[in-house]
Write a protein that binds this DNA or RNA. Structure first.
Lengths: 234, 234
DNA sequence: GGCGATTTGTCCGTATGTATC
DNA sequence: AGATACATACGGACAAATCGC
């Protein structure tokens, strides 16, 4: 029998209670431990966790294994960016732009990659995963893929402007086309970009070609939509 | 002890397996029962559920109490070319494009609008709010703003291609630039686009000009990111 | 640095409720 | 009414990360 007078499940009622609780705390504070809270609310730890899941989902809490559960910054009120212009001039104004190479690997191309890069099915591709920061803040994750024959050229790349690096070595690339979309981040992306899983990412798939018009580079970037806008000028 | 050779938790590995499984099924199909699947993958039912949670979260599955778990429609993505008009670009792909005029009003321009459209501060602007549907599915909300002197020209507009409507009346517009971003929908937007408040929107702010190069139209579109992509080709 | 205590993460087992067929 | 399927809740156990002593 359900002893609650509510018809809602306990975990949802509890989530509501926790929301009010969290509201009164400061961002950065840690909640009491799960066992403590479960005891206090007289529910099983799993039920408490299920309730906290809701708040984590909403981007109000972040869990840290071995440490505790932290109250996140208040949800950003999404501004009408249409009119606040995070313009190209800002990023061009010598704001600290940084690129960190996170991963480098050579692997067989997927079917879609082979088609876009005009490679033989299963040909080797070089994949670079880069994190881009502006003013010390992580903004974008970019996955570049090249025909593996370019590996020697890119062997020394450690970070910084990849475009510039290639141009310096005689491979100036131009964009053939881009596909722009938006989605929510995966667990890993949210982690690396220090963002909530509930905040959107702007994704850009770009195929670039060398001066001869051959497709050379396939890049897929995902950027925090609250820190990044894409401008198109014909 | 963890018997898996992977370092990922079982439920994430299992989610990956399920994704491949679901991929091969038809939208509308029901998955085998949780107990059956749990047995088949030799995990506890809770572990299976935890894995399925991931796919539900991703919008691939929907649970129905007492019935089962259904494979959802795969979102169709409509690429929209930056250089051409909305309707033309999409109907060229054989898609049923429809535009419904939701609101029409004349009001004073905001500061930002006046600047972009090169109007005097406080000048009147004509604002149109349009809902665009593709294949009967709501996809975009578009807010167009014009110098109010264009009102007589647009007085008869009731829906359909706005670009075409203007071109027919001697005002062919071209794009000056676009700013593309992403955010979560407001309650009203989610409502009108029949979408979840947790799913992202792709937003595009476009300034268009007449053949003389004068800015004439400021449009701000918000589109369901699960159905809409933006394509840029230089 | 090591070690134990604390805290979150994962997994299993079991029981019961509720909606659907 | 009975069987089936998903939903909720409790219990125990151990792993993994963190922190303080």
């Amino acid at each position: 029998m359900n002893l609650s007078r509510q018809d809602q499940p306990i975990y949802l009622e509890l989530a509501e209670t926790l929301r009010r609780e969290v509201q009164r705390m400061q961002p950065g504070d840690y909640l009491p431990g799960e066992l403590h809270l479960a005891t206090r609310f007289a529910v099983n730890r799993h039920t408490l966790r299920r309730a906290m899941d809701e708040l984590v989902q909403e981007g109000q809490l972040a869990r840290h294994k071995g440490k505790g559960t932290r109250v996140l910054d208040r949800p950003v009120i999404y501004p009408m960016r249409a009119e606040s212009a995070y313009s190209a001039s800002l990023s061009a104004q010598g704001l600290g732009v940084e690129a960190r190479l996170l991963e480098r690997r050579v692997r067989p191309a997927s079917e879609a990659e082979a088609e876009r890069l005009q490679l033989d099915p299963g040909a080797a591709v070089l994949e670079l995963l880069t994190l881009r920061l502006i003013d010390k803040q992580p903004v974008s994750l970019i996955r570049h893929r090249y025909d593996a024959v370019l590996e020697p050229v890119l062997a020394d790349y450690e970070g910084g402007s990849l475009r510039g690096f290639l141009a310096d070595r005689g491979t100036a690339l131009t964009r053939a086309y881009s596909l722009i979309g938006a989605r929510l981040p995966s667990r890993e992306e949210a982690d690396r970009l220090l963002m909530s899983r509930q905040a959107p990412l702007l994704s850009v798939l770009t195929l670039s070609q060398n001066p001869a018009g051959q497709p050379v580079e396939l890049s897929y970037s995902t950027s925090r939509a609250d820190r990044f806008q894409y401008q198109v000028t014909p």
